Simulated scan of single mutants.
Amino acid sequence: MSLQAFSDYLVLEKAYSKHTVKAYVRDIEMFQYFLDEHHSKIEISKANYSLIRQWVVELVNSGISNMTINRKISSLNAYFKFLMKVGDITSNSLKQHKALKISKKVQIPFSEQEMLSVIENSIKIVDFESARNQLIIELFYSTGIRRIELVNIKTSDVDFSNQQLKVLGKRNKERYIPLLPSTIRIISTYLEYRENLPTIKDSEMLFLTQKGIKIYEMLVYRIINKYFSEASSKAKCSPHVLRHSFATHLLNQGADLNAVKELLGHTSLAATQVYTHNSIAELKKVYAKSHPRNKR
């Protein structure tokens, strides 16, 4: 069974994004390359668990992180399940596999002071790019959307009358996020500058480059990194840290976990709970201040 058939299956039946499908195919091709190099070009469908373990050992020895290795094995597992589904194999060689252990790293969000410093002091609106950059930061912090979600926002996704934003999340799942009045004003300001661009090629997209084409993910990363590196001493200043800050600050202010889950576009509460550890310090303050036993 060709990888193209598997790729088509992921796109058409599983509704995975093109980026995700490319990652899956790349991981499987890497395993096939390993087989070609070390085991006389054995087909993946005929690879037993012993061969897969040899690949895992090679990946570990190459210095690749356990998280990345687990992702590659997950891609291979999805391929085996597909081969079983179409009848090419009768058993999954990864059925008994256990994922490698991953050390949990605490993602430290930006503080509220750092956020306010950037939003209120770092950007002076003088042209198209400064208006766009301000809106990018504002949307990340006020909605918690992912970088790819921001890049793919269309002008028609902004509902000014209902003050909400339609977002296309993972697996093409739509969700609606309320917009603050301040965010609506910043969007309006940006659109005024956007209309004056000399050329607009991707007119349906909200965020554009100076050349009038759809903005790309690496540029968004550079924008966030530029402004927050100046305001924060954190080693990592990325769009994901802004998403993390959005969730943490909401929870610190008493927001319901299920509500934050819906805003983030998570399918399970477990995915949202990773943000709660940063709220413990705030909870301790409230606990110490409010509990009757602590007043004696």
Rank of each mutant, 00 (worst) to 15 (best):
K154A: 06
T199S: 08
L179V: 03
L180I: 00
R194Q: 09
R243K: 13
K170Q: 09
L180H: 06
K166S: 06
S229T: 14
S182P: 00
S233G: 00
D159F: 05
E192T: 15
K173V: 07
F160W: 05
C237E: 09
Y227V: 01
F207A: 11
E204A: 11
E174A: 07
D202E: 03
V220R: 07
T199Q: 11
I177Y: 01
Y176H: 03
Y216Q: 15
I153A: 05
S233K: 14
F228N: 12
T183M: 01
T248C: 07
Y221M: 10
S233V: 07
R185K: 14
R175A: 11
I186F: 00
I213D: 06
D202A: 05
T155M: 05
I224E: 03
V158C: 12
Y216L: 12
S229R: 12
N172T: 06
T209H: 07
M218K: 13
S203G: 00
T189S: 07
K234W: 00
F207K: 11
S232M: 06
A231I: 04
I187F: 11
I186Y: 02
L191E: 15
I184M: 12
I153W: 08
K154M: 05
P178L: 00
F160K: 08
T199A: 07
E195M: 15
F207Q: 12
V158I: 15
T209D: 07
K226Q: 14
K154Y: 04
L165M: 02
I186L: 08
L206A: 10
S188A: 07
F207L: 15
Y190K: 13
H244E: 09
A235T: 10
S233A: 09
T199D: 01
L219W: 03
I184D: 04
L206Y: 13
D159W: 07
P178R: 02
R171L: 13
M218I: 10
A235Q: 14
L206P: 12
H244Y: 04
F207T: 07
T189I: 14
K166A: 02
S229F: 03
D202C: 05
N225K: 15
A231T: 08
